[in-house]
Design a protein around this nucleic acid. Structure first.
Length: 506
RNA sequence: GGCCCGUUCGUCUAGGGGUUAGGACGUUAGAUUUUCAUUCUAGAAACAGGGGUUCGAUUCCCCUACGGGCUACCA
């Protein structure tokens, strides 16, 4: 086991889904761990049973597998500090919560949620803390006898941390430097809920300690609760083992304001989740980058460069390169607005960078998903080589390559018919004969034959190339027309000319 | 409201006491490709404001403004 141990947490709840920020946190954890030959640990924080979503845990495993970010220790893989699922560690948290109560650093609170809500409504700036705690129902304000009676009667209660007055807690964040807080501003957070489950605050400290976590990465939104965690590390007597803190900048909405959320995806027309997420309860499908046609390489790449750079201007990185070049001091402090246009650019770069063989399976899936029969892999490989530079997302391969597998169903007749002549019909009829005679079916041979014939018929090649293209492809797009014809083969090329001729000369 | 964090082209960012403030996405124009895309070339585009410190500030300090986060028996 390494002395560098980092963990990510995942809450299988609707709001804790695996969105961009989540994956980026996972990625930075992974990069840091691998760079330092450390351990990358996945914990499932199912601390809130009411919000637990069925299938969410499997979903995150799938996401991580798709990205290639496999944890060294996880609920599935196990590890020396199992279990890694918080619901299975329930007893542990109570033990430490009770210890804090005995030490006087925490206390029982019997106030009902309704009472608290009323206080918040009626008292401006109400917080459960040193100012108001004496007037509320807890083991600090009640007598020992009263407390024991309530406890014996199984009165629902929580355990809250007792935040000290007039202190300043400070700590060193690896990205932000020294950060400090006045304890008077911090309220007595709930540590253990009435249902016996810990809140994030307790669980994260206890688990990080027991699992010997050395570095804790998390989003900047956690910065305000850091003093609670600091105090807990102190009260539990573990301060020397406290992990180094790394609070990552947030990923923001591309327009307007605020942190990127699930809803922004639907609103702005791009995914915010790694993979499609289907919520069985609501029947709602939240689209993912994978299904939209992103390559995992590109997805990771774009996430890594959102808030981090290597200082050289390089933008395209493999996962191995990222591991090699990653460093905490090159993470920026400011939040970054997500730019979908740039995200797509990363994907197109990766499609260009990857060879046909690496793309084969994914492209095949796209084509077969559209009902195309792919005859053999060698042919598919050649097709991919021809069209990959013009694809941004994986589904683009359908439109860019469909004519290699099926003749055009429709023709862009407007580009051909108005300028069609008898002479052209005659040209193509002769071309069919000429093509039939060709033995070496290669681009160069086709081109010379084509152009030679055009000269014979005294028609400019430019007048014929576009019709020829439309005969083969159906529209004004695609690679060089003779490359297409070469790949299509003699028979298919002739068949397509004949068929289109019927339409054009009509 | 309170607390915390932040601020360089529209966006992601590099830089850092003296620079023509660099790159990328997007955008504009042109070249190439007898299609489209790719590719190439060029262009427009930024140091939030005010005070200090200093010979000199975009860079360091303070204030203001703006942005963001948190302020639950959610994470």
């Amino acid at each position: 086991m390494s002395d560098k141990r980092v963990r990510v947490r995942f809450a299988p709840s609707p709001t804790g889904g695996l969105h961009l920020g989540g994956v980026r946190t996972v990625l930075f954890n992974y990069l840091f761990a691998k760079k330092n030959h450390g351990d990358f640990i996945l914990r499932i924080e199912d601390t809130d049973q009411n919000r637990y979503v069925e299938g969410a845990e499997a979903y995150i495993s799938d996401c991580l597998a798709w990205c290639g970010l496999t944890p060294d220790e996880s609920p599935v893989a196990g590890g020396p500090y199992a279990p890694y699922r918080q619901s299975e560690r329930k007893a542990i948290y109570r033990e430490y919560a009770e210890r804090l109560v005995r030490q006087g650093n925490a206390y029982y609170a019997f106030d009902t949620p309704e009472e608290l809500e009323q206080n918040r409504r009626e008292i401006p700036n109400f917080q459960y803390g040193q100012v108001y705690r004496d007037g509320l129902r807890n083991s600090l304000s009640l007598t020992e006898h009263e407390v024991n009676e309530l406890l014996d009667a199984q009165t629902p209660h929580v355990i809250r941390i007792k935040i000290p007055a007039d202190e300043r807690v400070s700590f060193n964040d690896m990205i932000r430097g020294q950060v400090s807080f006045e304890t008077n501003q911090v309220d007595d957070k709930v540590l253990l809920k009435a249902d016996g489950m810990p809140t994030y605050h307790l669980a994260v400290v206890v688990d990080d300690y027991l699992m010997k976590i050395s570095h804790a990465f998390r989003g900047e939104e956690w910065l305000p609760s850091a003093p609670v965690h600091l105090l807990l590390w102190d009260y539990l007597g573990w301060k020397a083992d406290m992990p180094k803190w790394v609070h990552l900048p947030l990923i923001l909405k591309p327009d307007g304001h605020g942190k990127l959320s699930k809803r922004d995806g639907a609103r702005l027309g791009f995914p915010v989740y790694a993979m499609n997420w289907f919520d069985a309860k609501t029947g709602e499908l939240t689209p993912g980058f994978r299904e939209l046609g992103f390559l995992p390489e590109a997805f990771l790449n774009l996430l890594a460069t959102l808030g981090w750079n290597d200082g050289t201007g390089q933008e395209i990185f493999t996962l191995d390169e990222l591991v090699e070049k990653f460093s905490l001091d090159r993470i920026s402090k400011a939040g970054a607005k997500f730019d979908f246009e740039k995200a797509k650019w990363f994907n197109s770069e990766w499609i260009k960078k990857l060879n046909a063989e690496s793309l084969k399976l994914k492209v095949k899936a796209v084509l077969e998903g559209k009902g195309i029969v792919v005859p053999d892999d060698d042919y598919l490989l050649k097709v991919i080589e021809q069209v990959k530079d013009r694809c941004v997302l994986l589904p683009d391969f359908y439109h860019q390559a469909v004519y290699f597998f099926e003749g055009p169903k429709e023709y862009d007749v407007n580009s051909v018919k108005p300028k069609w002549t008898e002479a052209k019909t005659s040209f193509f009829n002769t071309l069919i004969t000429a093509l039939s005679a060709i033995e070496a079916w290669e681009p160069f041979v086709l081109e010379t034959t084509f152009k030679g014939l055009a000269e014979e018929k005294a028609i400019k090649a430019g007048e014929l190339l576009l019709p020829f293209r439309i005969m083969l492809v159906g529209g004004k797009f695609g690679p060089h027309v003779f490359d297409i014809a070469t790949l299509l083969g003699k028979r298919e090329t002739i068949v397509r000319i004949e068929k289109a001729l019927g339409v054009f000369a009509d």
